[in-house]
Structure formats: structure tokens, C-alpha cells
Design a protein around this nucleic acid. Sequence first.
DNA 1: CACTTTTTCACTCGATTAATCACAACACCT
DNA 2: AGGTGTTGTGATTAATCGAGTGAAAAAGTG
Lengths: 266, 266
Amino acid sequence: MTANPTQDPQSAAIEQLERFGLSTYAARTFVALASLGTGTARDVSQVSDVPRTRVYDAIDELRDRGLVDVRQSSPKQFWAISAETASRLFEQELHHRTTVLRTALSELEPIERQAEQRGVWTVEGQSAVTERVIDFFASAEEEIVYMTVEDLLTDDLIAALGEAAERGVSIKLAGVSAPVQERIQDDIPSATMFESLWIWEDTPAGRLMMVDGRKTLVSALVNGKDASLSDPRSETAIWGEGDANSLVVVLKAIFTWRLDTADPDA
Amino acid sequence: MTANPTQDPQSAAIEQLERFGLSTYAARTFVALASLGTGTARDVSQVSDVPRTRVYDAIDELRDRGLVDVRQSSPKQFWAISAETASRLFEQELHHRTTVLRTALSELEPIERQAEQRGVWTVEGQSAVTERVIDFFASAEEEIVYMTVEDLLTDDLIAALGEAAERGVSIKLAGVSAPVQERIQDDIPSATMFESLWIWEDTPAGRLMMVDGRKTLVSALVNGKDASLSDPRSETAIWGEGDANSLVVVLKAIFTWRLDTADPDA
DNA sequence: CACTTTTTCACTCGATTAATCACAACACCT
DNA sequence: AGGTGTTGTGATTAATCGAGTGAAAAAGTG
């Protein structure tokens, strides 16, 4: 997962197929067939390095999944469905499985998950942090304050902000770069900007978020000094929820001070 | 995989999570946490039957995937993301992975896959057969003839027919049940019906298809006598392509005879 | 400071799967 | 027909991975 330096199509396809539940033989066999179009066990074995005697089992597996058809002759001929059809097939199946998962999980989810917690939770990895922020945006009812130094304001986030804005949530942003700022003005005209600030002008910055004055999140990039922008995944965040939560209290104080003193229209 | 009699949410969720690449410990841990909301290693161990000493590893795995956050206290507290967020996360990831697969596969697909083949290919399983039929519909340029005895004309197929019709493909159907027939008239007004027929009036029937007079498919349900409609997955089809293909020749003869003699407007 | 609980880590056992081998069936060629 | 090489199936071995167990270190608690 971490080692993926734009490898060749072969290995990429094989890796994905394996992760979708095929055995390595089946995966290699299918990839071989996909490049051949059709072929015999021998052909497949030669280009895939699957032992010829095992190609038949692999074909069986692929047949069960509807990925390969067989011509009953001697030698048997195998035929792979097209790349387009194959991916459509997988997408369909996986969509179905996520639906099953969603249903099952929500059935056993507790009625209400208690908010109002002591202490703070930690999240690791940029994508995970973003995911969490989006979640919080989605739960906002009145106000979102979001502040970032670099351009940690991706399309996902803008979309989530847009949805919130349409619900009537007031949105206050800071630290947005000029080009993105223009986009925001178009997409979410109701959003107001306030001056970024302060201590970490050019530090390995992260983000800072508060929704409804009772959910807050702070993040930072871990490689403080050395490799600052090398690995984009090295972000760590902490968040807390509830009026009495210490992190919430602190951030609320900072933000209200800042928002009050700042020029409200900028 | 075959044993799936609408099991309880617990096992269903665990099964899906495992198939998405989580270890069984991680899957069980997440499900436990999902029902608890938050909890310690001990809590998790009790409801999930994961050895307490291994909950930590499982949490690490879940953390890497952004499914769980941790509160650094003693004992540590674990927090699971919501069912909704989790499934969205998976759907996103899987969509991405199918895209990677699609790209990789199409890069190594041969320039042109030779049509015009001797012999016939076999497909097994109702879903696989349907998939293949849809594929052929999508490749049709002039004419589709499709004939089925039972209601092997699902929404997928109707949709595929619709798309073909919009491309200007002429569509000829037979053996469609009355209710479905009405639907067709609405969705695809250009389609013409002809009388089903013949030998297999109430046999364990299948389908019969021809596109552009050069691709044909015939299917049958295998459990001829005993369990006819018990297992819907026991369908087998054969198909062939090319003007000289024997199956094509036979079917073309049958159909042209049938279509010529039948009343063209019915 | 003793004692419990939490957390980490190393190791064993078992199951799954890759890989090899031996043999039977079949087709082709002379 | 008979020989020869290729194809398909089944059994067997080797290796890998993950579940489960237990010991030991770390952190709390009285």
C-alpha cells in the first residue's frame, strides 16, 4: 500500500485483483489472458509464470466469478472478458458489499453515541484527518470555523462546506490562499474570511477547526524540521467534543477573541 | 460465501470487513467498537472475544485505515467512526481501486481482440450469463434479437436494450411476459415483439440471443427435471461469434425463418 | 513498596495456499 | 494401429501467513 511507485500495469492489475479476493494464480492468470485475449493453458502459463498444471484451477476460480469463458476443445481455450466489463463487474460487486456492510453496521450501532467527553482523541494520517474534518462539517448546525495555513482545503472539504452552508450554517475561514479564496467566493458566497495569523506563519503548519463551539480539532505535520513536505501523510490531529472539554475551551477562547477583534468583512 | 442465510448483523459486518482486507481480529474489534461507540481494550475484548493482549494490534491496523481514533490515557480509550462514515470510506477506497484496475487492465489489453472464431464458449452462472448478454447488447450496431421464456429480462437488461435502441439499433423481442411487455412498450417504443414459440413451451428454459447476425448466445437451466427453480444460479450458456461460426449459422437460420414468417407487427 | 492492570513483544501452532510431482487421457502422426 | 508428445487431474510436499498463547515490561494504585 505504501510501496506504489507507479508500477507497471501488470503488477498493478495483479495487486488489485488479489486484494479483491483472487488467489495469486487466478490474478496472474487473468492478467495474462487479458493481454492475450484468448489462449490455452500453455500460453497462459508462459506469460504468467503460473505452473501450467495449476492454470486449470485458476481458470475455475475465474469462471466462478464470471471473468473467463472456456471453449471445450483440446487443448481448452480460455477467453477473458474485456477490461471495461471486468472493472464494471468488480465495481458492482463491491458497491453491493459496501451496502451490506453499511446496513449491518448501522443495525448494531448504539442509539446515541455520547458526545461530551473528557480528554482528546488522536487521528493519524492526512487522509484520516481530512475524513474526520469532513465528518464534523457534516454534523455542524450553526457555525464552522476553519483555519489552515497551507492549502489543506481540498475539493472534498469545499464540497462539505458547501453542503453545510446550504443548511444555513455560517462559515468562517482563514488562511486560505488567494486562488482558492476566489473559488470559495463563487461556491459559497455566504462564507466570511478572517485574517489567518499568528505564531506559525511559516511553520510546518496544519489546521484548526471548531464547529458549533463544541467540537474542535487541531492538526500538525509531524516532521517539524527535516522532511517537511516530503511525505504528505505525516499529519497528526487531536480533537475533542463537549462544552466542558479542555481542548474545546481553549480553542473557543482563542477563536472568539480573534473573531471579535478581526474585521468582520474581509 | 455460499452460506449467507441473512445472518445477524455482527457476522455479516465481520465477514464484509474481512473481505475488504482486515484481519479477523481487526474486523471483530471494529464491530465491537462500533456497537460500543467507545471503549477500552478490555471492553472490546469482552464483546468481541479477541484476546485482550491482541486488541492493541488490531487497533493499530484500524488506525492506519482511519477507522478508529485513540485517546491517550490509561487505560487507552478507543473510538470508532460511525457506520455511515465507515462505509463511505470503504466505498471511496474501493472506487479508487477499481479505477486503478481499469486503467491497468486496459493498458495491457491487446489492440484488437479477434472476433470471428471457430467453436463456442461456455459461461456458467446466471449472473455471469446476464453480464455477457449485456456486454453483447452494448456491442450491437444494427440489430438485437432476444428471446426468453421465463422472465429472464431484468432491469439491467432492459437498460442495456434501451441504450442500444437510442443508438439506432433495431430490437426484436419474444417470450416476454405481459407485465414486462407493457414496460418495454413505454421504455423502448421502437422495440418490436414476435411470438415466442416453440419446442420448449414449459421446459426449464433459458434464453436465446443474436446481435447483428454474427454473435449468438443460447442458455439453459441445468437442473432439467428435479430442482428447476430452486437455485437461480444454475444457468449455463454457450456463445459464438463470427459469420462462419457454426452456432451463429444455425441460429441465424432459425431466426430469419421465424422473423420472416411471423407477423411483423404484434 | 508491593501488587494489580495495562501494554508490548516474541513464539507456537494450525490452516491456507503456492508449488512440485506422478499419472491417466487424449490427440496427432506416421 | 501403435508410438509419441501434449493436456488435464489428482495427490503430495513446502512455505507462508495469521490466530492464539504466554511471558515480560510499563504504568497505575493502594
